[in-house]
């Protein structure tokens, strides 16, 4: 309830951030191939900013590592996100941000699926459909004002 604009969820529950991924010994070994794993995908997207709050999606528990699935060999990524409230109007924007972030950070070979955790949003199906539609995503990114909002979500706070 500040600044005249009405927040849909003014007082979200905040969750702890997971730490930096610990370096394994094999990470420094040139000869070993490190496959892309769930944690790596999660690390890519966990720091995306929430459009409303100065918090990351991880802190709001919108993203959880358990709901990130990757298959490096099959080149497929499947991410489910959980809006903080069932009527969240930002769900599409959040989904778009996640999708864009993954598109920019992963090699072309990957097929990226972003969807809402089943049973957590009122208009779950509609949002999922929008996010799965390549052309609608591409069209959305042509929209410079929308792109600016997405870029704001993806801008690095920390670095």
């Amino acid at each position: 309830m500040s600044g005249g604009t009405r927040l849909e969820n003014a007082n979200p529950v905040i969750f702890q951030r997971s730490g930096e991924r610990l370096l394994a010994e094999t990470d420094a070994d040139e000869d070993i191939h490190d496959p892309i794993d769930d944690r790596e995908i999660f690390d890519l997207i966990r720091s995306i900013n929430d459009p409303e709050h100065p918090l990351s999606l991880e802190e709001l528990n919108v993203l959880e590592q358990a709901r990130v699935k990757v298959d490096d060999a099959e080149s497929s990524v499947d991410v489910e996100f959980t809006p903080t409230i069932p009527h969240c109007s930002m769900a599409t924007l959040i989904g778009l941000s996640i999708k864009v972030k993954l598109l920019r950070s992963l090699p072309d070979r990957f097929k990226i699926d972003v969807s809402i955790t089943p049973g957590t949003h009122a208009s779950e199906e509609a949002v999922n459909k929008q996010l799965a539609d390549k052309e609608r995503v591409a069209a959305a990114l042509e929209n410079s004002s929308l792109l600016e909002v997405v870029n704001q979500c993806l801008a690095n706070k920390s670095i």
């Binding site: 420094a28 191939h33 920019r104 950070s105 670095i159």
Partner: peptide, 14 residues
């Protein structure tokens, strides 16, 4: 093939 390299690449590309 190395995760550390990918991390730098992701940051730079982002």
């Amino acid at each position: 093939r190395k995760r550390l390299v990918r991390r730098e690449a992701v940051q730079a590309r982002g």
